[in-house]
């Protein structure tokens, strides 16, 4: 059986809020190392990969592989009841048809209990190859969100170019062109504002802004975001959750017709 208690319960709500517009039904795969999720969007352009490691929970118990087939719209309805500072506990049998979710207020004077019906989801798992990316950019997640939403107002697509001079986000639309360039930046007192660009070779790729803006719904999870690029492979956008738990998004590039 599964029993997992999360003190940073808002993490669960933020993860679900970040992915529910991209994927609707997905398996939460539980085993002794933690809770993982991998799902593609309907059009098979983007992939979500999440891992909440066992260390993120206290206690965490899961002695067998358990797949929790969850409709995220339904889970969102249950998570509406979650309040700041609540402890959340997930419980399920070995072959569950429902997921038991308990919220406890930090003062322990309120316990809310929900049973969410589960579904059988036949999900294809994709093998994600280990990639040495040509460019890795770590930057404030709010900045990335602002760049993507600002450029989306002008165009459907953005070209991301990483060179030794910096990283340039540019777009061309009916009303004109736009571009934002970021250079390496270090702020000793406010490290969360740093822009770190690691480059082994120049990269230039074009992506759909609709998906990037969608990924930015994960912004409340972390004040930093990591963007990894290599020519002719999917973009990786990573938000660290707690410790080494993560939420990753992969996006296939657009190519010249």
């Amino acid at each position: 059986m599964l029993e997992a208690r999360l003190s940073q319960s808002m993490v669960l709500k933020k993860v679900v809020d970040a992915i529910k517009d991209l994927v609707q039904d997905c398996n939460f795969d539980c085993n002794d190392s933690g809770i993982a999720l991998q799902a593609m969007d309907n059009s098979h352009v983007a992939l979500v990969s999440m891992l909440l490691k066992a260390e993120s929970f206290e206690p965490y118990r899961c002695d067998r592989n358990i797949a929790l087939g969850v409709n995220l719209v339904s889970l969102t309805k249950v998570l509406r009841a979650l309040q700041n500072d609540d402890l959340v506990t997930l419980k399920a049998d070995d072959a569950p048809d429902s997921l038991n979710i308990t919220f406890e207020s930090s003062t322990a004077d309120r316990i809310s209990e929900y049973d969410l019906k589960l579904m059988d989801i036949d999900q294809e798992h994709l093998g994600i190859p280990d990639t040495e990316y040509a460019a890795t950019v770590t930057m404030p997640s709010t900045e990335f969100k602002r760049i993507c939403t600002d450029l989306q107002a002008m165009s459907e697509s953005v070209t991301i170019e990483a060179t030794k001079d910096g990283i340039k986000f540019s777009c061309a639309g009916d009303i004109g062109n736009g571009a934002v360039t970021l250079r390496n930046y270090q702020n000793v007192e406010k490290e969360h504002l740093n822009v770190d660009i690691e480059l082994t070779e120049p990269v230039s790729l074009t992506f759909s802004l609709k998906y990037l803006v969608n990924f930015c719904k994960a912004q409340p999870l972390s004040d930093r975001v990591k963007i990894c690029l290599s020519n002719e492979v999917p973009l990786l956008v990573e938000y660290l959750i707690t410790g080494t738990s993560y939420l990753r998004f992969y996006l296939a590039p657009k190519v010249r017709d």
Partner: peptide
Amino acid sequence: TRKQQSILGFFAKS
């Protein structure tokens, strides 16, 4: 014009 590629072209089913 640019064509959107599928993620399935990069990551194989396992």
